[in-house]
Each structure stands twice: as structure tokens, then as C-alpha cells.
Design a protein around this nucleic acid. Structure first.
Lengths: 222, 222
DNA sequence: TCAAAAGTGTTAGATTTACACCCATGA
DNA sequence: TCATGGGTGTAAATCTAACACTTTTGA
């Protein structure tokens, strides 16, 4: 039985834009493409959608194959479907972005896949239309970040307000006034000051904060 | 030659959410599905992506087949890819929304396709995951409308400020203060008052305005 | 003792919201 | 003449942006 047999089938893949935050910079995880065509070119990670796999599952699987991590924050960006976007065959690809805490990403695994964290402002030319995908993901992620507290996914469990501010600056692409920023954060009751002090970043020490997800879900989620 | 032959291919279709504005209400164009499975169910219009057709082209083609119109405002919403979303076969579908001026849509053509304009607030249950697609399109369209003057695509060339306000109210789902609205519009120099007067809607007559696309593109586009 | 990051409030300006009456006209 | 939709301005409240100094402590 085949209702649609007169129509053409195509390959569908998923490409993931993996954002990380390290050394005060927003980074993207890219690697050298391991297959033809385009072998050796800088590229996003991706995978083909299996016959009995949802596209969301495919994105999660791809992400997990690369990082070993599950339950990451992930959002679909959209489908890229120019006929000749892939130099080999006609492939429609669906882009997803994910946010990871770089410290959760096993270095061994990273090296194994030849993956590299690259500064978002210093991205090389990527395979196919992957630069477009990154651009679009960044735009979406920025937008989301303005209205929802997703940034925590890029930070350690405990973080200082300076770290948080640097993150927002890196994502937004512009500096933020320290006092105004802290004022805004203080109003978000789901960002809680902990008893811990970070002594790494300064002599004086900075209070460590944490994101209370339960509080957020109960009291602030739309 | 086939680089990816070990991977499965799938059907990919496009579904279009066609928004119109009539009688002060935001409407969606839907029809009775003409093929199995699901024949006779309320459904969006869609079409399969051809082997040598980009997804954007497919969306335009689908839209044109139904309405006879080209160069409409259209935006991709995203890919829907649950394995069993289509009751017949595994089909991944990419949703696009389009904005049309209902007066440009030939009634004859509408009837020929058994298409109906349905109030966005009174949508029946649609085929497959089409209700999700509409919901998501509406969300996106709302968001876009807040920041870009796309609403004009839903109105006649010449429109009154009351019409424009009603449109924004219908899309946003809430009433707007008349004076504040007009103040805001007055600041948008690309909305120009014409010499024409609409006498249909009131005894006194209302000034007709138009959207100056060139002015907008030159002076306001980001 | 000093360099380096942490921490802290106030004020001016800009934006947003609320609100009510007169006007012109066709029926 | 009156019912109907068209058209207009001001003031309060809220939000946003600008701005500079003191604290702590390890080197």
C-alpha cells in the first residue's frame, strides 16, 4: 500500500548548531566533514532522518552521538531546501540549535569527533548552507533569550552575575550596564543567590547564583 | 552515483496556512481533503516537494495552484516530522504561512477548490497535525506583525485607519486604544494619507491611506 | 599598598497607557 | 435631528538608560 507513490521521495537530514559559552565568548561546535562530498570541509554535525524516526528524535540522536548528552535545550530553526544546497545529492535539511554547558562535554569525545569550539564571530566558511543555518539559529536564539531564561543552559549550575552578564553580552552582541543588569536580575526571583562564593575570578570573591527551574516553571512560565 | 544511498528517503510536502482578513476577522483558508487517506476531512492545502524543486518554490507553486496569485508574502514556519503524523505514510511536512488580500482571490477559483474562509477562532479539527501548524503560524505571524509592517498584505491597496486598527486587533487578539493607535501610525511615514475618501463605512467618510513600500524599504527596513 | 573584580541607587528621559469629546453626514 | 463612525491631545505612570564610587583581598 502506498498512497503517495507517484511522488518523489528525498533525503532529509538534520543539522545541529551547538552553542556553548566559554571564556566570555559564544561558541559553536563544528568539525571537519568525514564523508564525501565535501570531505574535510568545516561543517555542522548532522545525520539523516531514519524511516521510523521523528525529526526531533533524529536531532536528539545526532546531538547525543556527538556529545553523549541528552535532555539538552533544543529548538528547531527551520528547513533548508534549495535543490542544490548539498553538492552531492538533493537533501532537505532541518536545522536545530542546542545549548550546552561546555563543561559537560567530555573532551575525549570532542577530540574523537574532531570537533572544535569556534567563536561565533570567527566562523570559517562552512559546508553547504551551514553558515546560513548558523546565522539564522543565532538570530532565533537571541530572540528567545530576550524573553525566556534559556541562557542558564550555557552556564554551570552555579554562576556569578558577571558570568551571566558576559553571556548576555556575548549573545546580544553588545555591552550591558552592570547596575541595570543586576537590577533586572534581582527582580527575577527564580535566580537565587547561594551560600557559595567563587574565588577563581576575583580576589574579593563573587556570590554564586543558581537558576531555580521549579520556581520558574511554577511562577513565571507563560 | 549516489553518496547517501544507504539512507532512507521520505516524502516531503508543504502545507500552506493562508491568512486573510475579512469583515473585521482574521481568517484561514481551508478545504475538504480531496485524496485518501482522510478524504473529506477539513485540511490545509499542500503539495509534495518535487525532486528538482526547492521547498520555497513548492510553497509558491502550491499557493498559486490554489489562488492563482504570485508574489504573496510568505514565511516558513517549520518542519513537522512526527513519524505517524500522516495517517497514510511517513511524510515530513513543512508549513508556510501566506498573507493574501481576500479581494484578490477569485471567487470562482475558491469554489472550484471547495475552499472556505474560516474564522481563526472557529477552526474545526483539521487533518493530521494541521491544527498545530495553524497555531504555530499564528504565533509567528503575530510576532512578525509586532515588528514589521506586513499587515498591509492583508488589506486592499487603500484602507482606512479603522480597518487597519481592526486588523491589528484581530491578529493581536485584543482591543487597541484608537488614539494611541493613530498616534503610532502617524509616526510611520510610510503609511501615507491619500486624497481619497471611503464613504462605504461611515456617513462622514474616512480618509484612505496607503502603504508606501518604496519609502519603507528605503528608510525603515532593518 | 595597590590592582582587579564585586557590589550598590538615583535621576532624567523616553515610552506607554488611560481617557472623552466634537465633527461631518446620510438617513 | 440624530445615530454612526471619524477624528483629535494631554497627563500620569511606567520603563529604560545613564552614570561613579566603595569594598574586599591576594599578590
Amino acid at each position: 500500500m502506498s498512497y503517495y507513490s507517484e511522488h518523489a521521495k528525498v533525503w532529509v537530514s538534520v543539522d545541529v548548531i551547538i552553542f556553548g559559552f566559554d571564556e566570555g565568548k559564544l561558541k559553536v561546535l563544528i568539525g571537519r566533514r568525514q564523508m564525501d562530498p565535501g570531505r574535510g570541509e568545516w561543517s555542522l554535525y548532522g545525520g539523516f532522518v531514519g524511516a521510523s524516526e521523528s525529526i526531533d528524535d533524529c536531532a536528539e540522536r545526532t546531538l547525543c552521538e556527538l556529545t553523549g548528552l541528552k535532555d539538552l535545550y533544543m529548538q528547531q530553526v527551520g528547513a533548508f531546501g534549495a535543490v542544490d544546497r548539498d553538492p552531492g545529492e538533493r537533501v532537505i535539511s532541518i536545522a536545530y540549535y542546542a545549548l550546552i554547558n561546555v563543561n559537560h562535554y567530555d573532551e575525549r569525545l570532542r577530540k574523537e569527533h574532531n570537533a572544535e569550539w569556534v567563536d561565533i564571530d570567527a566562523l570559517p566558511t562552512l559546508y553547504s548552507d551551514h553558515n546560513d543555518m548558523v546565522r539564522m539559529s543565532l538570530r532565533r536564539m537571541r530572540q528567545k533569550m530576550r524573553t525566556q531564561p534559556i541562557g542558564f543552559r550555557l552556564l554551570p549550575e552555579l554562576f556569578t552575575l558577571t558570568q551571566l552578564q558576559k553571556l548576555y553580552e556575548a549573545v546580544g552582541g553588545q555591552e550591558i550596564d552592570k547596575r541595570n543588569f543586576r537590577k533586572r536580575i534581582k527582580e527575577m526571583d527564580f535566580i537565587e543567590k547561594t551560600e557559595f562564593i567563587d574565588k577563581k575570578s576575583s580576589k574579593r570573591g563573587a556570590a554564586l547564583y543558581t537558576f531555580n527551574k521549579i520556581m520558574y516553571n511554577d511562577n513565571f512560565k507563560l
